[in-house]
Amino acid sequence: MSGSTYVTFSLGEHLVGLPVDRVQEVLGALPMTPVPRADGRVAGLLNLRGQVVTGIDLRSRFGLPTGEEGTGTVVVRSPGGPVALVVDRIGDVIDVDDPQPPPATLVGPIRDLVRGAYVLADSLLLDVRLDAVLSLDR
């Protein structure tokens, strides 16, 4: 079985990742314009080189307590165009193989948003189900 390449980032204590082919670009913190009466998981809108992009607060989406200000933005490809995910910290691009089922210790919304996990030397990488994350009706 051949490995996969993932872009990693942190949300609280969790190391999470997305397949590199779903990621358009990785940026630092970007200013977001709040959207009145929007879903609480929507961080706002941002201007990405002239294109208006919706920002999703991934910490809120995963049901994690509010904490540190997101210092990273991961712009992902979706059928409707790019979407910006606000994350705590940007990680590395790594190669992984041998996916495992999601850990039984995951509870709350994060449980349904993780496809599986990869055991790394010093941590566990959670494989995010991006389409589920982008579907705010769940």
Rank of each mutant, 00 (worst) to 15 (best):
P36W: 04
S135Q: 07
T54N: 01
D131H: 02
P31Q: 09
D127M: 04
R41F: 03
A29C: 00
P79L: 09
L58Q: 11
R41E: 13
L125Y: 01
D95W: 10
Q24C: 00
D122P: 04
E13M: 00
M1T: 15
L125M: 00
G44W: 13
M1W: 14
A104C: 06
Y118V: 03
G12E: 04
G12A: 02
V20G: 05
G44K: 15
A38Q: 10
D137S: 10
D131P: 05
L58E: 06
P103Q: 13
P82H: 08
V74M: 08
G40K: 15
R37M: 13
A38R: 01
G70F: 03
A117F: 05
L58C: 05
V53D: 06
H14K: 02
L48E: 09
A43S: 15
L124M: 11
D92Y: 11
V133T: 01
R61A: 06
L48K: 03
V128F: 07
L113T: 07
P109F: 05
L125S: 03
G108M: 04
M1F: 12
V53A: 07
T73Q: 01
L58A: 08
A117Q: 08
R49H: 13
V20W: 00
A121S: 12
L58Y: 09
S135C: 03
L130K: 11
G67S: 15
V107D: 04
V53I: 09
D92L: 07
T33R: 15
Q24M: 02
F9W: 05
Y118T: 06
P19V: 00
E69S: 13
V23W: 05
V20S: 03
E69F: 12
A121D: 03
V86W: 01
G81D: 14
D39P: 09
S4T: 12
L120H: 13
P19G: 02
A43I: 09
V83A: 06
P31T: 01
L134V: 08
D131W: 01
V35D: 04
L106Y: 00
L58M: 09
P103D: 12
R37W: 12
M1Q: 13
V128I: 15
P79N: 14
P36M: 09
P34Y: 10
A132R: 04
G44H: 15
L27V: 08
P101D: 06
R49L: 08
T73D: 04
D39Y: 12
G17F: 02
A43K: 14
G81S: 14
T33K: 15
R49T: 11
L130N: 13
D122R: 11
Y6S: 05
